[in-house]
Computed example of a mutant assay.
Amino acid sequence: MLYLWLKALHIIAVVCWFAGLFYLPRLFVYHAMSEDAASRERFCVMERKLYRGIMTPASIAALVFGIWMLVLNPGLFASGAWLHVKLTLVALLIGYHHACGAMLKRFARDENRHTHTFYRWFNEVPVLFLLAIVILVVVKPF
Results as ranks from 00 to 15, higher is better:
Thr88Val: 11
Val15Phe: 04
Leu21Gln: 14
Cys16Phe: 15
Val139Thr: 10
Asp110Ser: 13
Ala32Arg: 03
Glu41Val: 15
Leu83Ile: 11
Phe142Asp: 01
Ile54Pro: 10
Asn123Leu: 05
Pro74Met: 06
Thr117Trp: 13
Lys140Arg: 05
Val127Asn: 01
Ser39Asp: 14
Phe43Pro: 07
Val137Gly: 03
Val29Asn: 12
Leu27Val: 01
Leu83Asn: 00
Leu72His: 14
Phe28Pro: 04
Phe18Gly: 15
Ile94Tyr: 14
Lys7Leu: 12
Asn73Glu: 11
Val14Glu: 04
Ala99Cys: 02
Val29Lys: 15
Leu72Glu: 10
Arg106His: 03
Ser59Glu: 01
Thr117Met: 12
Val137Gln: 05
Pro126Tyr: 00
Glu47His: 14
Phe43Ala: 05
Phe118Ser: 13
Ile60Val: 12
Glu35Met: 10
His10Phe: 05
Gly80Trp: 03
Leu9Phe: 15
Lys86Phe: 06
Trp82Glu: 00
Ala132Pro: 00
Leu92Arg: 03
Phe28Arg: 14
Gly20Cys: 01
Thr56Val: 08
Pro126Lys: 01
Asn112Tyr: 01
Gly53Cys: 11
His97Leu: 13
Asn112Trp: 00
Leu9Asp: 04
Leu92Asn: 00
Gly75Pro: 02
Ile11Asp: 00
Ile94Arg: 13
Val64Glu: 05
Leu131Phe: 15
Phe28Cys: 09
Val134Ala: 12
Val134Cys: 11
Leu131Pro: 03
Ala102Asn: 09
Glu111Gln: 15
Met55Glu: 10
Ala91His: 09
Trp82Arg: 04
Gly80Asn: 02
Thr115Pro: 08
Leu21Pro: 03
Arg120Leu: 13
Trp82Lys: 00
Thr88Ala: 15
Tyr3Ala: 08
Pro25Val: 04
Glu35Val: 13
His84Arg: 01
Tyr119Asn: 08
Phe43Lys: 11
Gly66Cys: 05
Arg109Glu: 08
Ala38Asn: 10
Leu9Gly: 13
Phe22Tyr: 00
Val15Thr: 03
Arg40Pro: 04
Phe65Ile: 07
Ile60Trp: 02
Tyr119Cys: 14
Leu92Pro: 03
Arg113Asp: 15
Arg26Trp: 06
Leu6Ala: 11
Leu76Asp: 07
Arg120Phe: 09
His97Pro: 09
Asn123Val: 02
Phe43His: 09
Glu35Ile: 12
Ala58Asn: 02
Leu27His: 03
Thr88Ser: 14
Asp110Leu: 12
Val45Ser: 10
Glu47Arg: 13
Ala62Tyr: 06
Tyr23Cys: 02
Asn112Pro: 00
Glu41Pro: 12
Phe43Gly: 06
Ala78Trp: 03
Gly75His: 04
Pro74Cys: 06
Ala13Leu: 10
Phe129Asn: 01
Phe18Thr: 15
Ala38His: 12
Asp110Glu: 08
His10Leu: 00
Cys16Val: 15
Thr88Trp: 08
Tyr96Arg: 14
Lys7Cys: 06
Gly95Phe: 10
Phe129Tyr: 05
Leu21Cys: 09
Leu63Asn: 11
Tyr96Leu: 14
Ile133Thr: 11
Gly80Ala: 05
